[in-house]
Design a binder for these strands. Structure first.
Lengths: 341, 341
DNA sequence: CGCGGGTGTTGAAGCGCATCAACGCGGTGC
DNA sequence: GCACCGCGTTGATGCGCTTCAACACCCGCG
């Protein structure tokens, strides 16, 4: 920076003013300094800038699994909003490892970013609390820590289940199955509850069987599907809600192989609008998890917390409304269409 | 850090030694200082560290589109390797915008990262050259800049096409079609060349038609597929190589709707092993683009360049060998299986 | 002509750390 | 008893920037 100052024939402080308070600089000087900057290809050292200024224009985004399209959407939502605001989002992918997630949080803490957005898979309450002890604003996305010590942005997972069941019931299905993993997974338990509520509203007119699976991967779906095939043939099943899109795709796959028609014999839908499931022959009905909104809203909360007086900051939990995405795995298809979005 | 020094009753420099050269510190002192660090929850300020040390333990990864699974694999490959080495990979997603890509590069340049890995979609030669002017090592992944001013890691895209065509020919197909976008896209042109080479080796025994599409999205595939259906019925087509997995899925979709059996009547395969296409009913044969290796190898080259004397650095282009991934869209299936990986 | 106020500009202080010459101290060899 | 050595430790220096009190200068007013 002193090179720039020398080249432009001004003091160091003036160059800094050009960069940070251009309105405080005389037009002629400004132009001269900017010329020198361009000519020398000067790029301001962010480390020194942050060290001296004591604040940062970038925020850290820690994501547990970048290969899940929900987290990609979250990242996009936050980034687009940040670039509107002239801020920067740095992303760290924890690759499904909790220790890596901790390392990523510590890294951003050490880098003194303005704030941290965390989209964890398991409870990261302790880590968040530790980071917050250091005075670094942190917002948790897509996971309810159950603690009241930070802002959160969640999707109403009970509503997800409710919307799914409502959709099947409203399109004429009366013998439903909910296929999902164990309830220790927060979203599974909530979605299940929503499904039950919708079924209960029908007062016995609609039946519901619940099929647990070992995990939420496609192989789990395959095993579950074999039992479902029998139920369809027996006439005791005409609508399947899989807690996960990938599970739904696996089920559809088995149905196809066994000659069970979707959605003719049975409607099948997922619950998390996962792009990894978009390539199928039968476009999957699902429920949109609002990743873009989650990222944007999370960043909004984070910026609010950064600007606010720490003493009077109130922790907010924003609950986003999920949205049904109807495609051809639940309603008759005249002609297959390509995946959208 | 001075707080830690005071708490442990040592000088500032000793705390620094504990952090950076623990072997130079007496065991008793070391323990005392580490205790103070833990008790105070001290986290070293990376900005100050880098400013003082003049070097960085983190490297920047700029990726043009995080929703493409190849780039996710690249990120994972680089990150895993980095964490083995105790380094840190920061990721920036340019979200398919070239101006954002430039901003991301400039950000990492300003942050004085140790080096930059760039996986661009369009030619970013000028930007790379600019960054390199500043003395920052940069390695380009998955794109041939055509310039000899930086290291690159590429997949042999001609081999991709060759492997694809060879696979179809070896499994008994003789009337092939190559469906792809325009040739101005580097990978498309190369894969096409590889396909031609494999067909040429058969000396007229195998036919090849080339079907251009407007773009590489599924909708482009739908339009192309309508013509292909006629060819299959006419008996002039029994094997389709789509330049992209998504294109292949769209084609399979139309075939399914029209009653054309895959792989019975016609084999269909893709060329970029994209996880967005893994959910389909017919698991897609494709060619693995070695994203994990690309990320790892890119980081290796980058670290080599960082350690080397800039004067005698030689630019290297590593060419990775693609690998065929055979699944059921090209060879008879007894029973549908779930997507693997 | 002198003075107050506004506009631009200056340069020194300090952000939190790594580094390194210098130093203290106990031990070794003569 | 002295010189010498090496291990631990110290604290001043500087990394590149922001900030701010202080200053230079010009204008208009009394």
């Amino acid at each position: 920076m002193s090179d720039v100052a020398r080249a432009a024939g001004v003091a160091l402080g003036t160059v800094s003013n050009v960069l940070n308070h251009p309105d405080k600089v005389a037009p002629a000087t400004l132009e001269r300094v900017q010329g020198a900057i361009a000519q020398l290809g000067f790029v301001r050292n962010t480390n020194a800038q942050q060290l001296a200024a004591g604040r940062s224009r970038s925020i850290g985004l820690v994501v547990i699994d970048i290969s899940n399209s929900l987290f990609v959407d979250i990242a996009r939502g936050a980034q687009r909003f940040a670039s509107e605001l002239g801020m920067n989002v740095l992303m760290a992918n924890s690759d499904n490892r909790v220790d890596q997630q901790r390392a990523d949080l510590d890294f951003f803490d050490g880098a003194r970013v303005g704030g941290i957005l965390l989209a964890p898979m398991e409870d990261a309450g302790e880590d968040v609390a530790r980071i917050r002890t250091h005075g670094r604003p942190t917002v948790v996305l897509n996971f309810d820590t159950g603690r009241n010590d930070c802002c959160q942005v969640l999707v109403d997972n009970e509503e997800v289940g409710y919307l799914a069941a409502r959709h099947l019931i409203d399109s004429g299905r009366t013998r439903l199955a909910f296929v999902g993993g164990r309830d220790y997974l927060q979203p599974v338990a909530l979605r299940r509850r929503g499904v039950r509520r919708a079924v209960a509203e029908e007062g016995g007119r609609v039946s519901l069987q619940e099929v647990p699976t070992e995990n939420l991967d496609p192989p789990g779906g395959l095993r579950a599907a074999e039992g479902l095939v029998k139920d369809v043939r027996r006439g005791s099943l005409d609508g399947v809600i899989a807690v996960t899109d990938l599970l739904a795709m696996a089920i559809i796959q088995v149905f196809g192989a066994e000659g069970v028609e979707v959605p003719g014999d049975v409607a099948v839908m997922g619950c998390d609008h996962n792009s990894a499931a978009w390539g199928g022959m039968i476009p999957l009905t699902s429920v949109q998890m609002q990743g873009l909104d989650m990222g944007r809203e999370g960043l909004r909360l984070l910026l609010a917390e950064i600007d606010e007086d720490p003493a009077e900051h109130r922790h907010v939990t924003t609950m986003l409304r999920p949205e049904l995405v109807v495609r051809e795995s639940t309603v008759g298809r005249e002609r297959p269409m390509p995946p959208r979005d």
